[in-house]
Amino acid sequence: MASPLGHAPPRAGEALALTELWTDPLPLAPPARVETGFLLSTLDWIESDTGAPRTIEAAAERVGMSPFHFHRRFAELMGETYGAYVRRTRLAHAAALICRSSTSIIEASLRCGYGSQAAFTRAFSRQFALAPNRLRAMAQAQAPLPQRLHVDLVEPAAPVRLGALPLIGMRFHGPLTQVPAHWQHFAASLKAAGLPLETMTAMGILHDDPGFTAPGQTRYDCAVVDTASTFPALRAPLRRLSTHAGSFVRLDVEGPYPLIPEAVFGVCAVWLPRHRRALGEAPAYEMYRAPPWRGTGGIHASVLVPCSP
Rank of each mutant, 00 (worst) to 15 (best):
P258Q: 12
A95V: 05
L197S: 09
T230V: 10
P132F: 03
L77E: 10
L16P: 01
A187R: 06
G204T: 02
L153G: 07
T213M: 11
R219E: 05
M170V: 01
P146G: 14
L40M: 07
P159M: 14
P166N: 13
P273K: 11
T55D: 07
E262D: 13
F38S: 04
H207W: 10
M1P: 11
G216Y: 11
T89E: 09
L304P: 02
M1S: 13
V34D: 00
R90F: 09
A59S: 05
E107P: 04
L195M: 07
H185D: 05
P215A: 12
R277Y: 03
F248A: 00
A94N: 08
G6F: 09
I168K: 00
Q142I: 01
T218K: 02
G113C: 05
S48P: 02
V225D: 03
A284Y: 00
G298V: 08
R240D: 08
T201R: 13
P9L: 11
R171M: 04
I56D: 03
A284G: 04
G51M: 06
I299S: 00
T81S: 15
F128M: 13
A278C: 09
A118M: 11
A131R: 10
H93E: 07
T103V: 14
E281C: 02
R72F: 05
P25D: 14
L304V: 08
R289G: 11
L77F: 06
H69F: 12
L234A: 10
G280F: 06
D252K: 15
R171L: 11
A187N: 03
A137R: 15
A119H: 14
R100H: 14
M65T: 03
R239D: 01
F186S: 01
P292N: 12
D226T: 04
E61Y: 06
A263T: 14
T243K: 10
F265G: 14
L165G: 00
P258G: 07
A236C: 09
V34H: 00
I106F: 03
P4K: 08
C112W: 05
A75M: 04
G255F: 05
Y85E: 12
P306G: 03
I205P: 00
A193S: 15
G266K: 07
L91F: 09
A282I: 06
G174E: 01
G79F: 04
S3G: 15
V225I: 15
A192D: 13
R240T: 15
R250Q: 14
G297I: 05
P146N: 10
A52T: 10
P30A: 08
A60R: 01
R111I: 02
F212G: 00
I56E: 03
I56A: 04
S41R: 15
I299D: 05
F124S: 02
V305I: 14
C268E: 12
F68S: 12
P31H: 01
P166L: 04
H300A: 07
